[in-house]
Amino acid sequence: MIKAEEVTEGTTLPPLTLTITRADLVRYAGASLDFNPIHWNERFAQEVGLPGVIAHGMLTMGMASRIVTDWTGDPGAVVEYGVRFGRPVPVPDTAEGATVEVTAKVTKHLEDGTFKIAITATFDGKSVLGGATARVRLP
């Protein structure tokens, strides 16, 4: 577990590579009850102007937060997390699925003792989450 005295503004977190497959979309749809056909029906997704089936935004958001929870070693250390959804993540019907690259950096040590972390998530070199930040309290 990382300690507050080990962290300074500018500290970079270890990068994270995420794989999102169609099976992940099925599991997430069942858990979230979000059965929108853009997340499972290729033809429908294309008919509404998408490149194909896309990952649920909240699934991408949740998976990207792992960069912080893996680093802190304690999911309870996250006291705030927010993002804006930028671009969809198309998920091909292959074993490889879609690859999302996640990086993060500590941007501020706040007066209340917490740290603000800026998170970047990209698919195919383009950002998929905008303004993604987390605030953590470290021991």
Rank of each mutant, 00 (worst) to 15 (best):
4 A>N: 05
27 R>P: 00
51 P>T: 14
82 G>V: 01
35 F>I: 12
8 T>R: 13
25 L>F: 07
83 V>Y: 00
38 I>N: 05
33 L>S: 13
135 R>L: 06
111 E>W: 03
14 P>W: 06
41 N>I: 08
83 V>L: 08
76 G>F: 02
139 P>I: 11
127 S>Q: 11
98 A>D: 11
14 P>F: 03
11 T>Q: 10
72 T>M: 03
21 T>K: 08
85 F>Y: 15
131 G>C: 06
49 G>H: 11
43 R>M: 08
47 E>P: 02
47 E>T: 06
45 A>I: 09
136 V>N: 00
103 T>K: 04
65 S>M: 10
107 T>C: 11
34 D>S: 09
87 R>M: 08
54 I>F: 07
16 L>D: 04
83 V>A: 02
133 T>K: 09
32 S>I: 02
25 L>A: 01
19 T>D: 08
83 V>W: 00
34 D>I: 07
39 H>R: 07
86 G>W: 00
68 V>A: 10
73 G>W: 08
68 V>H: 04
84 R>D: 07
61 M>W: 15
93 D>H: 06
139 P>V: 09
55 A>L: 05
100 V>I: 06
133 T>Y: 11
112 D>N: 15
53 V>M: 04
86 G>M: 02
55 A>P: 02
48 V>F: 12
49 G>D: 12
5 E>A: 13
79 V>R: 15
122 T>S: 09
